[in-house]
Design a protein around this nucleic acid. Structure first.
Length: 442
RNA sequence: GGAGCGGUGGCCGAGUGGACGAAGGCAACGGUCUUGAAAACCGUCGACCCGCAAGGGUCCGUGGGUUCGAAUCCCACCCGCUCCGCCA
């Protein structure tokens, strides 16, 4: 399965090329190659079909002649058919080779950015849409303490033992730290239960499942692979959630379908050695609550994307965190995404905006890879009669972290640290922490 | 790990090596009937490629093979299910 619609590439090549090159010069080069390959593939395919057609009609004739006992004549046609068979084999092999090359080329081409995504080459060009609850002068010295120090004072983490058990960039929570994490997860799950079906998917998945979201084949180095059983550890719940409806045809009337999942996520962070090595900011394994929607079309998908963003924002507000919404520019967009809004929470202790959520619309890119189709809803004409359009269309997908927890925990601890060194428990979390109002030293 | 069974169109499900992709049922859509609906009845009802069109071709898990001709026979692989064993 390709990812960009081959028909779209055929009918509007310039538009596709221009859109891809907004990601960076040369991004569209493989597509240009695909256009040539496609032309060749169709030419060869037509020729092969012609030969096959002749073989087919010869075969029929053979059957007829045999039935009439005219074996000599049949024999002659059989010889002719055999000869054509050789030619057919050559053409078929060539057509298959071309199809395979098209497929594998297309598989590594990223999605076309939405027209609404801002121009730009890298993260410096991202656009801050708005900033909420941030006043740089409002933070006291007690908040300018990095979360790993807070954690040490309050006994919330155990990085040394995590490293002993699993190596560097693994994290262990303990005591109030573990409880705080669990409270946040539960809060997040509960807050979305009204519209999102909670699932607990497997976190080891098949290769096709990783291919569907676009994590393979291009980003194999970023993922943990269990070779013995050829399974992959998911880098995000987006992976199993997107494949929930793989190879299915959904009824437009049932859409959008919305899911919410809490899972561990695994990332090798191969290119990030030495970056953010302290504390919770970057780890090989972390927890995340993910929201996902399968929509019928772009319009519905964008509405879903806005809903996910609003929900994630609401959660940050409830946690009393300052945050900003960032519109990723074309050059900084993930490969599968058409448009992405990042939520960055402000962490006063490390004085950084931490990406805690990423809300993306994938157009039909992932759904095409995953073969998720939609049977359109009946259209009501001016005379009041309903007609269901023929065929199916490819679905759209949207997903976003309801929240990526380690960074949220970091921003939370630093924001809510009190002058006495304790950390306040905001109201929304209290029910999940036995009514506690503050986290204090053990 | 051992033994067995199976993968066919939106769904269920038939299918003899030779008549277009494939019976039948369900669903869907159009119509008749009805105040409207249901029921009943009639009809339509896969995708893709080449072609202005007529028309032709491909596709019955995947890939090979046998054959003049394969959904149908053979081989390999993938996936699923059942039973037994082991185990949280």
């Amino acid at each position: 399965m390709a990812m960009l619609d081959l028909r779209r590439i055929r009918t509007e090549p310039e538009a596709v090329i221009a859109a891809l090159d907004r990601r960076g010069p040369g991004t569209s080069d493989p597509v240009k190659r695909v256009i040539e390959l496609d032309a060749a593939h169709r030419r060869v395919g037509a020729e092969r079909d012609e030969v096959r057609g002749r073989i087919k009609s010869l075969s029929k004739e053979v059957g007829r002649l045999r039935g009439q006992g005219r074996t000599d004549e049949a024999e002659a046609l059989m010889a002719e058919s055999r000869a054509l068979g050789e030619r057919e084999k050559e053409l078929a092999a060539e057509a298959d080779r071309l199809a395979e090359e098209i497929r594998s080329t297309l598989l590594v081409v990223p999605n076309t950015p939405s027209d609404d995504a801002p121009d730009g080459a890298g993260d410096a060009d991202n656009v801050v849409l708005r900033t909420e609850g941030y006043d740089p002068d409002a933070y006291g010295p007690h908040q300018r303490v990095p979360h790993w120090e807070i954690g040490e004072q309050l006994g919330l983490f155990d990085f040394e033992r995590a490293a002993k058990i699993s190596g560097s960039m693994f994290v262990m929570y303990r005591g109030w730290g573990a409880r705080l994490l669990r409270a946040m997860v539960q809060l997040s799950l509960d807050r979305n239960a009204d519209a999102y079906v909670e699932v607990r998917p497997p976190t080891l998945v098949r290769t096709e499942t990783m291919v569907s979201t676009g994590h393979l084949p291009k980003f194999a180095d970023d993922a943990y692979h269990v070779e013995r059983d050829d399974l992959w550890a998911i880098p995000t719940a987006e992976v199993p959630l997107t494949s929930l409806h793989r190879d299915e045809i959904l009824d437009a009337g049932d859409l959008p379908l919305r899911y919410c999942a809490y899972t561990s996520c695994y990332r090798r962070e191969a290119g990030a050695a030495g970056k953010d090595t302290r504390g919770l900011l970057r780890a090989h394994e972390f927890d995340k609550v993910e929201l996902l929607a399968v929509a019928a079309d772009a319009e519905q998908a964008i509405a879903c994307q806005e809903d996910v963003l609003a929900r994630s924002e609401g959660l940050l507000r409830d946690l009393g965190l300052a945050y900003r919404v960032v519109d990723l520019c074309a050059g900084d967009l993930g490969a599968s995404a058409a448009r992405t809004w990042d939520l960055e929470a402000y962490a006063p202790g490390v004085d950084q905006w931490l990406e805690v959520s990423s809300v993306s619309w994938f157009g039909d890119y992932q759904a095409r890879r995953a073969n998720i189709r939609v049977r359109p809803a009946p259209e009501v004409g001016p005379d009041g009669t309903a007609t269901r359009p023929k065929g199916t269309v490819v679905a759209h997908t949207v997903n976003g972290s309801a929240m990526g927890w380690p960074r949220t925990v970091a921003a939370y601890l630093e924001t809510h640290r009190q002058p006495d060194g304790s950390v306040a428990v905001v109201e929304a979390l209290r029910p999940y922490l036995g009514g506690a109002v503050a986290i204090t030293p053990p």
